[in-house]
Computed example of a mutant assay.
Amino acid sequence: MDFLLDEDQLAIKKMARDFVNEEIIPYAREYDEKEEFPFEIHNKLREFGLYNFALPEKFGGPGIDKISHAVIVEELARGCAGITTSVEANSLASYPILVGGTEEQKKKYFGILADGGYSAFALTEPSAGSDVAGMKTTVERAGDEYILNGEKCFITNASYANYYTVLAKLKDAEGSNKFVALIVDRDSEGVNVGPHEKKMGLRSSNTASVTFDEVRVPAANRLGEEGEGFRIFMKALSYARPMVGAQALGIAQGAYEESINYAKERKQFGKPIANFQAIQFMLADMAMQIEASRLLVHKSVWYVQQGKPNIQASSFAKCYASDTAMKVATDAVQIHGGYGFIREYAVEKYFRDAKIMQIYEGTNQIQRVVIAKDILAD
C-alpha cells in the first residue's frame, strides 16, 4: 500500500497544474460569462496530451494510468469544471465501447476522437433520470438495421459530438423489452439536436437534448448482444463515477486554495481573518474533507486500474467528494463574505459548478441507495 504519487505521476500533475494556471484560469471566467464552448482551450489540451484519457494508447490515447487520469481531472476542474466536463464527456462516451465494443468499433470511433472529434453519452431522458429502467427510447430490428426513436436530454457535448453512445429498449415480436447499446453517428438522418441549455454552472460546457426520429442504425453499431445494453452502460458508469469524484475534488481544492489566500490577506479588527478561530476551524474542516475525498477517489480509481471497478468504492468516491465540493464551496463563499457573492471572485463560480456534482452521473441519493444495497447484501 502506497499513498504517494510516483515521479511520473508528480510530473503529470505539475504539467496539468501549470497548464491550468496559464491556459485555463485566466480565461475561465470569460467563457463562463459568455456561455461559450472554448474550442481553442480544448485544442491546446489535445496538443499537450491532456485529452481522451479513456482511450487505450494503441487507439490514440495518452497511455497513462488511471491514477494519473484522476490527478489530471482534479487539476483541470480546479481551473474550470465546465471545460473538464466536456473533456471527460469523451471519456464517458468511450466507456461503453471499451466495455462492449469490437476491435473494429474501437478502431473506428476512437480514431474519430484521436483526430480531434467529440462524442456524447446519451442515457438520461426527460422522464427517466435516476430510473433508467423507465426510459422510453426504443429500437426495433429491421433486417441489418435498428430503427431508433426517442429523446435524450442534458447530454454533454451534444451539439458538437460526431457520434453518440445510446441506450434504448428493444421491442421484440412478443412485446418484451430488452436494453440495447448502440453507437449512433451524428450525421444519420433523423438525428436532431436541441438548443444549448442555459445552466447555473458548467456554462462553458455544451449541454443539449438529442431526438431520434426513425433513425436507422446499422446492426454493426450495436455494442455487445441484444439484452446486454443495461449491463454495458452500468459498467461504463462504474468506470466514470470515480472521475466525477475527481472533478468534485478539483472544485473543492480550488475553493479551498482561494479561501486560504483570502483569509491571510483580508483584515478585520486590525488583523487577518485567518487569525480568528472561527475561520481556522472552517479551513481545517475543508482540509480534512478534501483529503478524505482524495483518498476515496484514488482508492476507487485504483480498482479501475486493476481492471476490477468496484461499485461500492465508486459510489463512496462520487458521493462523498461531491458532497465535500458543495460544503467547501459554500464555506468558501462564507469566508469571503460579501465578496464571495460577487462574480469577480472565483469562489462564486466554484459554488455554482459544485452543485451539479451531486446530481449528474447518478444523484447522491441514488449513490446511497447503491451503497445501502451493497452493504445489506448477503
Rank of each mutant, 00 (worst) to 15 (best):
K198I: 14
L4Q: 11
V166L: 06
Y320V: 07
N162D: 15
V20S: 05
G63C: 06
D2M: 11
A161V: 05
G190A: 10
K171M: 09
R46A: 09
V184K: 11
T207N: 12
A321N: 05
D32W: 13
G116I: 10
E228T: 07
G194C: 08
A329Q: 01
V166G: 02
K66P: 04
N149R: 13
S188C: 12
Q289G: 08
T165M: 06
N364A: 07
V191D: 03
K327I: 09
H196P: 00
G201K: 00
K327W: 10
R352C: 04
A346L: 09
E36K: 13
V347L: 02
L50S: 01
T138A: 01
S322N: 09
Y339P: 00
I366M: 13
P272L: 09
E36V: 13
K264C: 02
K318N: 13
G250F: 10
A120I: 04
Y95C: 03
P195K: 12
E344C: 05
A346N: 09
Y239H: 11
A219R: 06
Q289K: 15
K44I: 07
L5P: 11
C153A: 12
G224Y: 12
I147M: 03
I147A: 10
M200I: 13
T85W: 00
D172Y: 02
H196G: 05
D8S: 12
R241Q: 14
G362K: 00
A81H: 07
F19H: 04
E348P: 00
V217L: 07
S176G: 02
S130M: 07
A16Y: 08
E7K: 14
H196K: 14
I24F: 05
S127M: 07
S188N: 12
G117C: 06
K152R: 11
I375P: 09
E140T: 15
P272S: 05
D353N: 13
T138Q: 03
M234T: 15
E30N: 12
F230E: 13
K136D: 13
K267W: 03
E291M: 08
R17H: 11
E258D: 08
V139H: 06
E140I: 09
D144C: 04
L223T: 05
K171W: 00
L55M: 09
A181W: 09
Y239M: 11
I64L: 09
Q306M: 12
G150P: 01
V139K: 03
A240K: 07
R186E: 15
D285W: 00
G134P: 02
V369N: 05
Y146V: 06
Y146T: 02
N192C: 03
Q306K: 15
Y350W: 10
D144S: 14
N162C: 02
R352V: 03
L182A: 01
H336C: 08
D285F: 00
K318A: 08
Y95W: 12
I356T: 05
K44W: 03
A372N: 14
Q334W: 03
R294C: 07
T124S: 10
T84M: 03
K13W: 09
L237Y: 07
I67L: 14
T165Y: 06
S293T: 06
G82Q: 08
E145Y: 11
